[in-house]
Amino acid sequence: MEVRTIKVFTTVDNINLHTQVVDMSMTYGQQFGPTYLDGADVTKIKPHNSHEGKTFYVLPNDDTLRVEAFEYYHTTDPSFLGRYMSALNHTKKWKYPQVNGLTSIKWADNNCYLATALLTLQQIELKFNPPALQDAYYRARAGEAANFCALILAYCNKTVGELGDVRETMSYLFQHANLDSCKRVLNVVCKTCGQQQTTLKGVEAVMYMGTLSYEQFKKGVQIPCTCGKQATKYLVQQESPFVMMSAPPAQYELKHGTFTCASEYTGNYQCGHYKHITSKETLYCIDGALLTKSSEYKGPITDVFYKENSYTTTIK
Rank of each mutant, 00 (worst) to 15 (best):
P130V: 08
V58R: 07
F242C: 01
V185R: 06
D13E: 06
V206H: 00
P131L: 04
T258E: 15
T198N: 10
S104P: 02
Q122R: 03
L200C: 11
L186Y: 15
L81T: 08
K7D: 11
Y96R: 03
F174K: 01
T91A: 06
P78L: 09
G220H: 01
G202I: 00
L173P: 01
Q197F: 09
A247D: 04
V203T: 10
S25T: 14
T64G: 12
Y72C: 07
F305T: 02
G267N: 07
C193N: 06
N49M: 11
C190V: 02
D165A: 06
A87H: 03
D135E: 13
K298L: 15
Y297K: 03
T10N: 09
C156V: 06
S279T: 08
K93L: 10
A247R: 03
T192K: 12
Y234T: 10
I315M: 15
Q195G: 08
Q270H: 10
E264S: 09
A146E: 08
T91L: 05
N110C: 03
I277K: 01
D13P: 07
A146R: 05
V236A: 10
S86A: 15
T313H: 15
S50Q: 14
L254C: 00
D77I: 03
L186S: 09
K255T: 11
I45V: 13
D303Y: 04
E296P: 12
V99G: 07
D62W: 07
L173V: 09
K280H: 10
H176M: 09
N187S: 12
K293T: 14
T11N: 06
W107N: 05
S79C: 11
M244P: 01
N89K: 15
Y297C: 06
D287A: 00
P300D: 11
D62K: 08
E239M: 10
L151V: 03
N268G: 15
D38A: 10
E239Y: 09
A132K: 07
L153I: 07
T27C: 12
C190W: 01
R167H: 07
L121G: 03
L291Q: 13
T116P: 05
V203W: 14
Y84S: 03
I15L: 15
D62V: 07
E253I: 09
Y137F: 14
Y269M: 15
N49I: 14
T43M: 10
P130Q: 03
Q31L: 14
L179N: 00
Y96T: 05
K307S: 14
A289M: 11
I105S: 01
I152H: 03
Q230P: 12
T120E: 03
P130F: 03
L151A: 02
K201I: 12
V42W: 13
K93P: 05
Y72T: 07
Q175D: 06
R139S: 13
S240W: 00
T302Q: 01
K191C: 12
R141S: 10
I152T: 09
N49T: 13
V67A: 12
K7S: 13
R167P: 03
N268A: 15
E215V: 05
K191E: 15
V22I: 10
T292M: 09
A132V: 04
N187K: 14
P78Y: 09
K93V: 10
H273K: 00
V8Q: 02
V42P: 03
Y252F: 12
Y28Q: 04
H74V: 04
D287T: 06
L163E: 12
P300M: 13
T192Y: 10
G101A: 05
C225R: 01
I45A: 12
Y252P: 02
D135C: 07
P34V: 13
N110E: 06
G228E: 03
M170Y: 03
E144C: 10
C227E: 01
V188I: 10
I223F: 14
V304S: 01
K158P: 00
T64D: 10
Y269W: 15
K92L: 11
Q238P: 00
Q30E: 14
Y72W: 10
G288A: 04
K275M: 07
Y208D: 06
P249W: 01
T103W: 09
K127W: 06
D41P: 13
T116W: 03
E264M: 11
C285S: 12
S240D: 01
T27S: 09
L179R: 01
D165P: 03
E215R: 06
L291C: 11
K92E: 06
G257P: 00
C193R: 02
Y214E: 01
Q123F: 02
N309Y: 10
P97L: 13
T27R: 10
I45S: 13
Y138F: 15
Q98P: 06
P249Q: 01
G288V: 00
L17D: 07
C227H: 02
G39E: 11
L118I: 09
S25F: 14
L254T: 00
L59C: 11
E215T: 08
Y36M: 03
L283Q: 01
T43L: 06
Q122G: 04
S294H: 15
K201W: 15
K191I: 10
E253Y: 09
V166K: 03
K54G: 12
T258P: 00
G82A: 12
H90D: 08
L212A: 04
T266P: 00
D165T: 01
Y113S: 05
A205V: 01
P130N: 05
N157R: 10
Y155K: 05
